[in-house]
Design a protein around this nucleic acid. Sequence first.
DNA 1: GATTAGCACTCTCACCCTTAGAGTGCTAAC
DNA 2: GTTAGCACTCTAAGGGTGAGAGTGCTAATC
Lengths: 369, 369
Amino acid sequence: MVGEQAHTSDRSSTPRSGLELTERQRTVLRAVVEDYVLSAVPVGSRVLVDRYRLRVSSATVRSAMAELEALGLLSHPHTSAGRVPSDLGYRVYVESLMHEASLDRADQLMIRHQFSQVQLTSNEWLRLAASVLAGSTRSAAVVTPAKARRARFGHLQLVELGDQSRLAVLVLADGNVVQRRLDHAALERLMAGSPLGQADLDEVAATINAEAAGMTATQLRRRAPKLTGLAAHVADVVAGLLDDADTVAVEEVFTAGIGNVLAQPEFAEGAKLSGILEVLQRSDFLEQLVPVLARRGGVTVIIGHENANETMHEVSLVFAPYGEPDRALGLLGVLGPTRMPYPRAIPTVRYLSTLMNELLASHSGEPHD
Amino acid sequence: MVGEQAHTSDRSSTPRSGLELTERQRTVLRAVVEDYVLSAVPVGSRVLVDRYRLRVSSATVRSAMAELEALGLLSHPHTSAGRVPSDLGYRVYVESLMHEASLDRADQLMIRHQFSQVQLTSNEWLRLAASVLAGSTRSAAVVTPAKARRARFGHLQLVELGDQSRLAVLVLADGNVVQRRLDHAALERLMAGSPLGQADLDEVAATINAEAAGMTATQLRRRAPKLTGLAAHVADVVAGLLDDADTVAVEEVFTAGIGNVLAQPEFAEGAKLSGILEVLQRSDFLEQLVPVLARRGGVTVIIGHENANETMHEVSLVFAPYGEPDRALGLLGVLGPTRMPYPRAIPTVRYLSTLMNELLASHSGEPHD
DNA sequence: GATTAGCACTCTCACCCTTAGAGTGCTAAC
DNA sequence: GTTAGCACTCTAAGGGTGAGAGTGCTAATC
């Protein structure tokens, strides 16, 4: 029973080679993890024997615990407290001890039902996904939109809004929509006084649509100078839009269930979480995660100190990518204390990522409904 | 010096009529509030005399404090602690004691600079506004997008994406963009087998654009049956989009700086905030606030128990609407402990609401840049 | 040889007590 | 009306204690 690749961590901290546990050690470690996840209280040998009907005495369990501690899988808050799993202990648990079932049929249906309930736009999918994840795992959920690693031109529309205001609406090849207002002064200059109507705008849009299909920002920039004045200007604006689309904007990260995590005893002192929220919201943290997850595929679990970012050393992430590497790629998962219900979180994240895949596929054209 | 209307609360809790404070009481109340806001520690008579150079003895201050307590403006955590302002005390402070300046010229410029920095889309404005508010007031900020109370048709575009997938992209009259995928099966049926190309889509879009300009969902629904099969179907979809746009979706609330609030001693036990976050994110709390704020105009301060929602009894809100009542209306403001730096928060919120007004105006056509 | 009972040991937690200090309210004097 | 003085109250912090949980070790047992 080798650890599933899909669960190995960010860092190369697969359990040290040759880490072979006896059956008893495995049983004890599993019991410690599961009890601690439920109770949040360090678990002692006596409790373990009683609660899990181990057919041995507490002394035996104690010696097994001592061995596990020597291996670095358990730790000791202080002499007379029970044992607590270490990050490595959780890691071993996740990779080879956990009974991982796929998500309950009933849960699956419930989730699917919520998604089919309403005619949702893609952003609402994301929000719903975050909310479902958070609710189902009682952790904080994070969902980023599925975006192409390199945004590609799909279809451009220029719209006259007010007298002086024109909007460029760009549908990307991956189906996302971005928009930007055109600079009035620049247009004036290019038109050299003659009025600019919707018909003119349509013509420019048609020109660019014909030229730019499927292009990236760079490609479009190279092409732009070959167009006439007005079209060239607009092409440049559009290239800027493609650029923007290439950076995962913070605004587009959907979170839910932060309250769930706040309610955990680990974060009773609210200040602890505040730094974590900062990292999650402000930095390029998630963006850096995308390629890692994409390469790995499937569900990735990052436990406590395995996380490269020090602020995240007290939390675990269970994340998966969704979408297709070469088209549109997004990210979803949950964040909670290392004392996380992995056997629940992992299948849920996995199921949601496949579900989002389906939605994405049906959204972008495969005959699938 | 009568309380500014703009600051009166949600409930009709203007300070009880005939509440006339002596000059000394006013001085003491002001000092207590300002000291407590800074220190978060109940403030005693001695400290007050020293720190604020009152030219009287602590005994005098004590008697003034006792009077203020009898009036319900101060309270007493316990016998030998100092005084703490009550919600009503803050209310009086905000309405008639506070030295409210408009925002520093320097701060104004700094904020304005951030907005002019980049070519932003409207959603990025919102995110930026939230982030600026949060940073400037060290509280949590909330910004909702400016939306018409009744969404109106602006311009429709139908785009062919994949073989089987068509997207309806609707620019609303207020400049927002919404989108929805067209149901493939329904189109098939309507076309009765003949293929449907981009040209056909453009034609349908043109028809609807000609018919539907400026319409609400209801008006469009009334018109739809008069159109031909395909156009009627699309018009119906578009009406649905307008409906959707009428409900402030949760996804569209931008928050920032939750960490700031978590760091406040009031919320040292993180669990307290979790309920508040729930309310803010999940319910129609903000939506109910919109008409209230719109009617009032300007900055509205809601302090602790003045809030109708019980969960919010330990926090204060400083909010303002932005946009125009009949066109697009949004909401922005900050949330913090009742011990909030009102003299900072109020001008900041006010300034940001006027700034967003400007941006909105320039966005939708007035020659303003 | 693995398992277990027994036991001494350690450490935390809850409790109580005590004390210092902050702050009050009252009263009498100014 | 203001102030000094003082008795009083209450909290917060420190220290001591005992109960209890849990350990690790050792010697006996299966």
